[in-house]
């Protein structure tokens, strides 16, 4: 189980937290002005990258506060944790472990103990 460093409580096991999916998705200011398709994009479509992912967590069994994290979904390594009020970190701040465009990392993922 991965560890998450709650910005308010400190490092805790992931099971204390609930994931809230992609971060920085802003609820449309005027939903009525959107087409069905545009609205559907907001309600149902979220990024699902293999690699660097900006996501939300809430410390459900703790302070109940929401915060953001940048995690490499190909290794589950948490690269950064920041408060909702903090600026969104640039993707260039993070060293990616990705090896290929479809996102096979060098270590840490996949099924192979031996890499060719």
């Amino acid at each position: 189980m991965i560890l998450i460093n709650c910005p308010y409580c400190g490092e805790r096991e992931q099971s204390e937290f609930t994931n809230g999916g992609e971060a920085h998705v802003v609820r449309p200011k005027d939903p009525d002005s959107l087409s069905d398709k545009e609205w559907g994009q907001y309600v149902f479509f979220r990024s699902n990258p293999k690699g660097i992912f900006y996501e939300r967590w809430v410390h459900t069994h703790g302070c109940k506060k929401w915060f953001n994290a940048v995690r490499d979904t190909s290794t589950d390594t948490i690269l950064k944790i920041y408060k909702l009020s903090d600026r969104r970190p640039e993707i260039s701040e993070f060293q990616t472990t990705l090896k290929s465009p479809s996102g096979e990392p060098i270590v840490g993922s996949g099924n192979f103990a031996v890499k060719k």
Partner: peptide, 13 residues
Amino acid sequence: DGYNSFTQRGGYD
């Protein structure tokens, strides 16, 4: 598990 991951490894919990 309740979060996105491509590691083929979930939480022990």
